[in-house]
Design a protein around this nucleic acid. Sequence first.
DNA 1: ATGAAAGCGCTAACAC
DNA 2: GTGTTAGCGCTTTCAT
Lengths: 335, 335
Amino acid sequence: MVTLAEVAQHAGVSASTVSYVLSGKRSISATTRHRVEQSIRELGYHPNAGARALASSRSNIIALMIPLRTDMYVPVMMEIAIAVATTARTHGYDVLLLTGEEGPDAVRRVTGSGLADAMILMDVELDDERLPLLRDTDQPSVLIGLPADTSGLTCVDLDFRATGALCVEHLAMLGHRDIAVIGEAPAVYERHTGFAERTLDGLRSRAQELGARLLHRPCEGGYDAMAVTLARIFDERPGTTGFVVQNESAVEPLLALLRQQGRAVPEDVSVVAICPDQVAVQASVRLTSVSIPAQEMGRHAVEHLVAKLDGRGEDEVVLIAPELTVRTSSGPAAS
Amino acid sequence: MVTLAEVAQHAGVSASTVSYVLSGKRSISATTRHRVEQSIRELGYHPNAGARALASSRSNIIALMIPLRTDMYVPVMMEIAIAVATTARTHGYDVLLLTGEEGPDAVRRVTGSGLADAMILMDVELDDERLPLLRDTDQPSVLIGLPADTSGLTCVDLDFRATGALCVEHLAMLGHRDIAVIGEAPAVYERHTGFAERTLDGLRSRAQELGARLLHRPCEGGYDAMAVTLARIFDERPGTTGFVVQNESAVEPLLALLRQQGRAVPEDVSVVAICPDQVAVQASVRLTSVSIPAQEMGRHAVEHLVAKLDGRGEDEVVLIAPELTVRTSSGPAAS
DNA sequence: ATGAAAGCGCTAACAC
DNA sequence: GTGTTAGCGCTTTCAT
């Protein structure tokens, strides 16, 4: 293993000079810099992470807590994780992957041990038990998702309320009066996941403003569950012509069932999905949808964190504006 | 920040005693152990990761390199990543998330800096450029996936050759003679991904042995691509009655298209999928499938790594035997 | 623009 | 069974 001292000796300078060449924290003459860089290359030197962390009390690591569950939005989580990792690298940080399993203890462990300089939490619940710890520590953090009380926290999320509103609006403008919402699995609502409730809020209030009738039904994924849900919906509201789907694993079953029942999309019923673009494009009908900006959220979270670590950056709530892409699953209501 | 020295003082013992209580590397009398543990709790002590890494030259971190691409098996990757993270925790390790982006440099950086004690590589290509580096270093590593030359390496993977054979066997036993294989996107084959080629090998050799005719077609995901591919297949081999699908995003489109063409599953055609169980169960027809044991692979990789780090554990190639679950998408060939 | 040297908090000989 | 102490490799004052 090559040490900084060896590099210093090889280059004929002192250890501190090598250190400063590396950090750029003080000016170095061009000649010595080049000599040092040359030695570094020749010897294949890599600074020791532990020593660096100990001396500087900076690990250059960002912790990312992902949910343990894989019942929901897996591709989105993955995309966020990848965006976090690649963005972090461009700022000189690595990413430590934590699962929700340890719960609040993970937060204590990471902040207490100096393993990471900052953390990003995904899958935040409305009243998340990790939040008090985050408020108590001076370690910067960013939530992806929105808890009930955001005071003293930085959050990044899609504006799900606006997303709900946008979906209803699109359908209402097309003349749809009876709109059904296919939601996430009941468990998601039971654990009060913020995005699901906020979407519902947006859907409901906008529907009321526009005089549309809304029927919301949570739905487990899959074909069978969707069949039951759909039957109930048409039972209660036979005149339903608009659908909003916020459940990836219900999308294709819904389309298949509608087809099977002889209801043409978009001639007889319109469908708007809230899902990643990939899902919307690959579905058997190209879906009008609001996409989930996974990459943007991940990138944003890291950049905010880096700003905080550099002493810039305030606490704030960033809500990303939803964008609805019209594809071929929505059209004017049959009259 | 609470240090080990402070704990020692508070407990009225020396620093080394505290250290040994923590590591269990020498016997401590019950009374001192309790006093120390008490102090640790009272003061809320957490060992400093950097200091520990420096002094012990062990970071207690395992690096996990995941592919940057998200065109394939995203839920599987996620499941592996989660299994790796949780298993690692049970052994006292944390997981550093690296994307393939940096390529071989990431390997150099991590081994060189002592950031991680070991690494797990996913998405290994047949002739992966990271392999020489792994062979050169004495840092333990495990590949999830199988390169062409496994000498000096430890690998864990589903036995895809046996998987292919098993699928053909199942269909052949049911009397199917003309079998079509819907594969991954062409790009996957072009980059010589090991699992895709090995599956194909298994399919082909077993088909030959059993006297079945095989038609292999790569396929981009999605409905439109699948429609084109399917048309071609029935064009070339009108008598096709068996399908093997190894492409998650082709599964549902295939089923929808078959339905649309009036080909009943499993009465007219049988379908066997190679995919996660979740996909097989949630599809519009419950699919006979060979599942991808993501959890098992992740767990296995970590446990092998931990064994190596503890001085146990040999290099070896672990091929997990495929299991085919019969569901309702396969049946006797129409005669 | 460069050097010397004092730690950072912990581990692991080495003593007893 | 416990204490003493010398580093681990780096950063960062304080000098010059």
